[in-house]
């Protein structure tokens, strides 16, 4: 089996429909889509399309968990064990194996929750941009992209879904999201701890890793999908991120990245509307 497995070869059964990231963002039905004239909307039970929006988000969580499982698994395999620059320490691989188990459980939970919410697997599309962050050939950059950016997004998503479950009166959803949230805080903390340990004597590598994280974070802000505004569909979960090793400055930066992503998306949207009206 090869090292570094490309995203377009991720194995799926016939139910899954894959879109490119570009197709996904241009699809007007996607939340936060650049061509969605409504723009991003906060997920609340009083929205007329709340059930469908929640089901779509749940399906997105499910495919995200599958890719997170695949990414953690590849980190166990892709690198030789050791302390060299292109190697991965034994203890880090053990953490990634633990993460595999956690993500496998999250897949199981997501399948059960999707069924609970009336969704069939494959009903919504999948794009592989989450897994793509897990393909970086530098183990430190990969760790930062996955465990701090991707898993950090998961903290925000699960916290939002947990609150939605509470407001919507769905104790099953709230219960499950709270358990998954606990795991994600652990994963982000793993990322924060390993980033510090692996780059202790290499500040340049640390800066490269944090820059990669900023790029991934901007991508994961999904045109304003995740942010701190009242209408942000996914809210930045500062309290849980702090537990996972994020400091205030980093979270302020992340909020700024999200605002920039939203401003970019708003400009694109206005341009599209103007073109349509011309």
């Amino acid at each position: 089996m090869r090292k570094i497995f490309p995203a377009d070869l991720l194995a799926r059964d016939e139910r899954f429909v894959r879109l490119t990231t570009e197709q996904r963002f241009m699809d007007p039905r996607s939340p936060g889509s650049r061509s969605n004239p409504r723009g991003a909307m906060k997920l609340t039970p009083d929205r007329p399309d709340a059930p469908d929006a929640a089901r779509a988000l749940m399906h997105g969580i499910f495919v995200g968990e599958v890719q997170a499982l695949e990414g953690a698994g590849r980190t166990c395999w892709d690198f030789e064990t050791g302390d060299g620059g292109d190697e991965t320490p034994f203890a880090l691989k053990l953490d990634m194996a633990r993460q595999c188990w956690d993500e496998a459980r999250h897949c199981e939970i997501s399948v059960k929750l999707s069924d609970w919410m009336g969704t069939e697997l494959g009903e919504f599309s999948e794009s592989t941009f989450l897994y793509e962050a897990a393909c970086n050939p530098d183990p430190v950059l990969r760790l930062t992209g996955v465990n701090r950016a991707l898993e950090g997004l998961a903290i925000d998503v699960f916290n939002t879904m947990k609150e939605f479950g509470d407001i919507a009166g769905d104790p099953v959803l709230e219960f499950c999201e709270d358990w998954m949230l606990a795991d994600e805080v652990t994963h982000v903390k793993m990322g924060s701890d390993w980033l510090r340990r692996l780059t202790e004597k290499d500040p340049e590598r640390r800066e490269r890793a944090l820059e990669f994280q900023r790029i991934v974070d901007k991508l994961f802000s999904l045109g304003g999908f995740r942010g701190e505004d009242d209408d942000s569909p996914i809210r930045l979960a500062r309290r849980f991120r702090e537990l996972a090793g994020f400091d205030k400055e980093e979270m302020d930066d992340l909020a700024e990245i999200s605002r920039e992503a939203k401003a970019d998306a708003d400009r694109m949207r206005e341009q599209l509307v103007a073109e349509a009206n011309a």
């Binding site: 497995f5 070869l9 194995a11 590849r74």
Partner: peptide, 11 residues
């Protein structure tokens, strides 16, 4: 086992 996860289509 971790490496194979991405390569098997059966959920």
């Amino acid at each position: 086992l971790g490496g194979w996860v991405a390569t098997v289509p059966e959920l």
